[in-house]
Simulated assay, not measured.
Amino acid sequence: MQVLIFIFLLVSYLLSVTGNLTIIILTLVDSRLKTATYFFLKHFSFLETLFTTVCIPRFLHSLSTGDKTISYNTVIFFLLGIMSYDHYMAICKPLLYATIMNSRVCGRLVICCWIAGWLVIFPSLCLGLNMEFCDYNVIDHFLCDASPMLKISCSDTRFIEQLVVALAVLTNFGTFLCVVLSYIYTIKTIIKFPSAQQKMKAFSTCFSHMIVVSITYGNCIFIYVKPSAKDEVAINKDVGVY
């Protein structure tokens, strides 16, 4: 079973990295892909490559060697919110799109996403580094996520749990609200299009992004937005892999 899991994860990881790097390269070399949509997609692909590279190779190493030691040493939501706003501008304000979503504005939006992502995780990270773990150091997870780390700590983790939930609510629901509002106005505009072909083209532009939004927000709300970060770690582990 471990061999099958190793092969499946390895192939999935290689396909993910190859696909994301291809997107990044194409947006850099193809002059037709210099719009704001592909600019945000390039950063999203870069972030996805970093995220999978942090988690999957470590898991593959554990499967192949049996060494399960992990050393103890959210940008994505803000990018999803910005990308939904970009779709809204492209469909609802096509005449103003090129003027409003210029390269300077796009650059500033992406920088704000990266800074906001770091600011969200920094307080919990600093507090987590000061937790005590006594004698037990085995976590019920594939990576050093917040819930399994809090579960084995012998420190008082109530404040960290509350902080994690508060930041998760602020980040997830704040950016999710931006996504929902953007798509409400976008869908209203698409419905008013005169031809079915125009409607289909507009919906196809947003469909892939909506799938990513549903999976990402669904998983993270399930894992982080709840009263206790220590509860249901086993279920969180399965959802985290998904």
Results as ranks from 00 to 15, higher is better:
179 V>C: 13
206 C>G: 05
80 L>W: 09
169 V>C: 11
211 I>T: 02
188 K>G: 03
85 Y>Q: 12
72 Y>I: 01
28 L>T: 02
237 K>C: 05
233 V>K: 03
211 I>K: 05
14 L>S: 10
221 I>G: 07
75 V>G: 09
94 P>W: 00
41 L>D: 05
75 V>E: 14
224 Y>Q: 09
14 L>F: 09
33 L>A: 10
97 Y>C: 00
6 F>N: 10
166 A>C: 08
156 D>C: 01
90 A>K: 01
122 F>T: 11
109 L>P: 04
83 M>T: 12
116 A>P: 01
102 N>A: 02
242 Y>L: 12
71 S>L: 13
125 L>K: 08
2 Q>L: 13
172 N>M: 13
48 E>V: 15
200 M>V: 07
9 L>P: 08
151 K>M: 15
210 M>S: 14
181 L>P: 00
85 Y>M: 15
145 D>T: 15
32 R>V: 01
156 D>A: 00
226 K>V: 08
180 V>L: 09
72 Y>F: 08
54 V>D: 07
16 S>F: 13
212 V>Q: 04
199 K>D: 03
242 Y>W: 09
168 A>T: 07
143 L>G: 12
121 I>V: 11
101 M>G: 01
175 T>C: 12
130 N>E: 09
6 F>L: 14
178 C>I: 10
104 R>C: 11
151 K>F: 15
75 V>I: 14
125 L>I: 09
167 L>M: 08
18 T>P: 13
32 R>S: 09
227 P>F: 10
73 N>K: 06
118 W>F: 12
132 E>G: 02
68 K>H: 14
51 F>T: 11
125 L>H: 11
40 F>G: 06
106 C>E: 00
64 S>G: 15
121 I>T: 11
189 T>E: 15
221 I>N: 12
46 F>D: 05
62 S>I: 07
7 I>T: 13
88 Y>D: 01
225 V>Q: 05
70 I>A: 07
142 F>C: 05
153 S>W: 04
10 L>Y: 10
117 G>D: 03
14 L>G: 04
121 I>L: 09
192 K>M: 14
239 V>D: 01
49 T>H: 09
25 I>P: 00
6 F>V: 11
227 P>R: 08
161 E>T: 03
188 K>N: 13
58 R>N: 05
136 Y>D: 11
213 V>F: 04
85 Y>C: 13
220 C>V: 14
84 S>H: 12
232 E>H: 10
106 C>F: 01
193 F>L: 15
180 V>D: 02
107 G>W: 06
45 S>N: 12
140 D>S: 15
150 L>V: 11
94 P>N: 00
191 I>V: 09
38 Y>Q: 08
224 Y>P: 00
57 P>L: 10
155 S>P: 00
196 A>L: 06
177 L>R: 03
64 S>Q: 14
169 V>S: 07
62 S>A: 15
212 V>W: 05
60 L>H: 04
59 F>T: 09
170 L>W: 12
